[in-house]
Computed example of a mutant assay.
Amino acid sequence: MASRRGLMFLLSNTFRAGAVGLRRNSRKFYRSGLILGITGGSLLGISTVSAKELVIGLSDEDDTALNLEEFMATPITPSAILETSSEMMHRMELLCLKVQGDVCREIERIEGTTKFKVDRWLKCEGIEGGGITCILEDGAVFERAGVNISVVSGNLRPEAVKSMNSQGRDLPVEETMTFSAVGVSSVIHPRNPMVPTMHFNYRYFEVNPDMSEKQWWFGGGSDLTPYYLNEKDAKHFHCTYKSACDMHGPSYYARFKRWCDDYFYIKHRCMRRGIGGIFFDDFKSKNADACFSFVKSCADAVIPSYFPLVQRHKNDPFGMREREWQLFRRGHYVEFNLLYDRGTKFGFTTPGARYESILMSLPPRATWRYCHEPSKGSEEAELLEVLRHPKEWVTV
């Protein structure tokens, strides 16, 4: 009897190890534990069903296991749901979690010693869900870098519906309307003025009007804001996104590059925020999987499009003149984000808005100078010329 109990104890722990192994994505460990357990169970007179119950809720299919170590924090949606669900909200949440983890690890690798502060938060005031804010500040390479994800649902306020309708949608303002949204967004402000600022955002949105069919769409993009123009950098950034777009549609890059130039326009200054990239909204078709695949390709392009530029210029020499110009141009960045950016406006109209996460996109330092114009023929003037008259950086 003692040996039987000992074997049962060993078998039970084998299953526990298999469960832990799966949660850590050590699938071979899990599989070997399951096979040994079922075999041992039959020898001990334990039914196969009872043996499987020792790993409740876990699947033996490789593609359903989550590697939680890839993520910066525990997902907002329970892992058991994310492992098995085919809902687009859940697929997009997994993509956002992975992109956030990959980008944060790349930033920490370049930064060296400074690490991200990770803040997992939950919504309130009638909004369900939450998000994960990752923020790194005062690093040697990055003055501020933030990578956020949010997974929220609730009721849309009338002002939010009106804002969405102003962009060409036709949603009923008077009806009660629920929404679900998931997205990842990031703004990276480097310390060296020779390294450009980079922004990306990829999101999925669903609305459910009363008595109407659910509507859904994707949106997002990536754009570059240099302080000093480097054509090699600009071409590299745009070529990377053109390659990502070309895998899904020959007209995508030209269409979304033009949309990006138009969207990031600072009206009161008659110039763009930066040298663009791609931008799209209301992206949908009869094939949601194809739309998701396109968004994934764009998100996968973030690291190869930007971080080689960081490595190339993070140690470039600069002086007070370059630093002051960087801070001045950051002021323009702030103006666009607070006055024109749709995401910022929507965030502030959402019940229970988390303002710290919304304002994470702003640089830690910026300046404004009265009626300042750089000297003609200067490098600063060269940049402004491109911001006022966008260039085609790659052949379409």
Rank of each mutant, 00 (worst) to 15 (best):
T225D: 02
Q311I: 04
Q215F: 10
G139P: 11
S3C: 07
G6Y: 08
P193N: 06
L338S: 06
Y333H: 09
G45A: 04
K214Y: 06
D341V: 14
R144E: 03
K345C: 10
S26W: 14
N315V: 04
S186Q: 03
D223W: 01
P190S: 07
V161C: 04
I275M: 05
S163H: 11
M360L: 15
K242Q: 15
A234Y: 01
S186I: 07
K391E: 12
M194V: 02
E87H: 08
R5I: 08
N13D: 09
A160T: 15
E93T: 11
M198N: 00
N25H: 14
T14D: 07
E125P: 00
G33W: 00
L44C: 04
I76Y: 07
E70F: 09
P364S: 06
K345Q: 15
A301K: 02
P209K: 15
F292H: 11
P363A: 08
V99Y: 01
D60C: 12
M320C: 14
A301Q: 03
I278F: 03
K117L: 12
I35M: 10
K28E: 15
T225Y: 00
R258G: 07
N337D: 08
P75D: 13
Q311A: 13
P158T: 10
N315K: 11
F237P: 01
E206L: 13
T77W: 09
T240P: 05
A244E: 09
S59C: 11
L34S: 05
V182A: 13
Y355D: 02
L171R: 12
L383R: 00
H332G: 08
Y252A: 11
E380I: 07
L309E: 00
G45K: 09
V118D: 09
A51R: 12
A145Y: 02
L136K: 00
I38H: 05
